[in-house]
Design a binder for these strands. Structure first.
Lengths: 337, 337
DNA sequence: GCTGCAAACGTAACCGATAACGATTGCAAC
DNA sequence: GTTGCAATCGTTATCGGTTACGTTTGCAGC
């Protein structure tokens, strides 16, 4: 065992075993050309010193590191879901995962954060990267898979079928008899936000229901951004009978606002979200929403990245996962049709 | 802008600017000894190529990297909370964060995972590390702060006041009139699990209520581990009137089991958890639990680590954060006292 | 004109590990 | 005895960036 002093390097092991560092390296990597007795000596020295190869030095020298990277600008509750999916996909694959977060950029939307994070990792440390909800285009010398790409992005990506999902929501509300349906949009730089809004317009258009631009509010997916928007929508004399928020976080915030205003859900107001985060199932009433399993987005992104790194990816470079309408207690027919 | 080819290195910049890599390094790090005109040339070349210094190469050469590490063996929902706290504490501090997860160890409890992860980072990449719920002792050449240390650990740590928290829970149940109180313990290698069980014994002893060993089940904090245990407890002829699970995840699973068995909560059974994860507030009925803000554990750990790295930590090396009993709908007086 | 000094910049060693290459050894075949 | 080959292991260049040190250059002071 190492005494907790300075980190033990390969040359420490070599010195103790009486061999060169090259031999130690060969033993560590199981390469051919070392006698059994030498292997034993080196093994013993490694054990004795508690040596572990430095990720940094290894990745600098080697082209392959067997480490994949993930960059994100913040840790929301869905981030944990994504990570679970990623780790499950990577389990026993031989790939480790490094997540990089820059504290100076944290929480802010400074342009180009994804590029800078990527450049610091992708140079040598990682064989490939997953980028979660970038705000712009991403470029890299190593393979990259984007979860929820920016609008117009052409890099390999995994995303939910936001258009169909949003369409289904509005059709569900129309089917219940709603005609005045409010919409709280997400960050417009994300393709996901745009597709969800597109679905809103499309479903209304197909049903021949005119869109009232006054009922469309512009949030940024952040729950806090939704509070004033929901309040403004509900304070209107001709308030909508239903509100469709582009994320569960914003929808749950809308539920709170409705409760504060003394409105009953779904009696006075129907509310629908998008994402199906765990909290939505447990809300009171349960939130009707669209399931876009963040777990599977993470899982598929990791699976794709693995193959891209290995150079044996056969599937399409842009994966779209199906969504599913989850009807719970927060939607019902409007009281006054 | 760089064309998405090979990563651009410092020598690329140097070549374009017509200087040596040493000069580029000086410009990048703002060191003295470069003329204004040269700085301008180098800046321009960096801009043109989209150069970003390699984290790996830098950390190999330098002793300080301004990057802190965090190692965890899995991503549960509380991990996201910890990460939020860590990132908020690190915000604008100049320290970046790297999270390392080994896919081969993921989900398993192979002994010593924390040591191996640590050795791979702490050698050069990070200035210090946060270790989340290790199963054993941790050693490192660089500063380390442990969240929820192993039993008997002496390294700097941040933990909740589990003993008082658990004691309060049992006193709450005793105050409601419960006498047969089941307990689902956590992974015994963790100090937190042990303290919570200690609180259970202590409160019963102080109240003069004899402990029935048959009512103590041994889980591992994993929700899934609790299902058969809860079922076994509730299948007993002399089943407990209340169950105290050592984590919210296990408590929520117990709620499910009770529902499956047709037991009403809190009518037939009171249930209490520990952690106060977001899901607990939204469960039906709301879960009575002990709040040990994972956010603050992460926040304090990061704050402490920052100071340790800078060498100006003044406080105690073992921080204990207060806990708070949160009474919700899942506890009530037993139907048949 | 020569010296002295400091600013500006290049050269090369170095961080820890890897891998191409070369050197040494043992042994069998001729 | 010599040659050839394979097994084993050390030497050294290298990855990208940092920094101690040395060198060049410009300019002031004598």
């Amino acid at each position: 065992m190492a005494n907790g002093g300075a980190p033990v390097t390969m040359s420490d092991v070599a010195r103790l075993a009486g061999v060169s560092t090259a031999t130690v390296s060969r033993v560590v990597n199981g390469r051919y050309g070392v006698s059994a007795s030498t292997i034993e000596q080196v093994r013993s020295a490694i054990e004795q010193l508690g040596y572990e190869s430095s990720l940094v030095a290894t990745s600098l020298r080697r082209s392959r590191t067997n480490v994949l990277g993930l960059v994100t600008h913040s840790f929301q509750s869905y981030t944990a879901e994504v990570l679970k999916g990623v780790m499950d996909a990577l389990s026993q694959s031989g790939f480790d995962l490094i997540i990089y977060a820059n504290s100076d950029l944290y929480g802010t939307y400074s342009e180009g954060w994804e590029q800078r994070h990527l450049a610091r990792l992708a140079g040598t440390l990682t064989d490939g990267c997953i980028v979660v909800t970038p705000s712009g285009e991403v470029r890299s010398g190593t393979p990259v898979v984007v979860i929820d790409p920016a609008r117009g992005s052409t890099v390999p990506s995994v995303t939910a079928d936001n258009l169909t999902g949003a369409t289904t929501v509005v059709e569900h509300l129309l089917g219940l008899g709603h005609r005045r349906i409010g919409f709280i949009a997400g960050r417009s730089s994300l393709a996901a936000a745009w597709s969800r809004e597109e679905g809103y317009w499309k479903a209304l258009a197909e049903a021949g229901v005119p869109v009232d631009p006054e009922l469309i509010a512009r949030g940024d997916f952040n729950p806090e951004s939704a509070a004033p928007l929901a309040r403004a929508l509900l304070d209107r004399a001709d308030r909508p009978t239903a509100i469709f928020a582009a994320s569960d976080g914003m929808a749950l915030k809308t539920l709170e606002v409705a409760k504060d205003l003394g409105l009953s859900v779904p009696g006075d107001l129907s509310v629908v979200g998008f994402d199906n985060i765990p909290e939505s199932a447990l809300a009171e009433p349960g939130l009707t929403t669209v399931d876009q399993s963040m777990y599977w987005l993470g899982y598929e992104a990791a699976r794709m990245l693995k193959s891209l790194v290995r150079g044996n990816w056969e599937g399409p470079s842009q994966i779209v996962l199906p969504t599913r309408l989850v009807v719970r207690g927060s939607t019902a027919a409007p009281r006054t049709p």
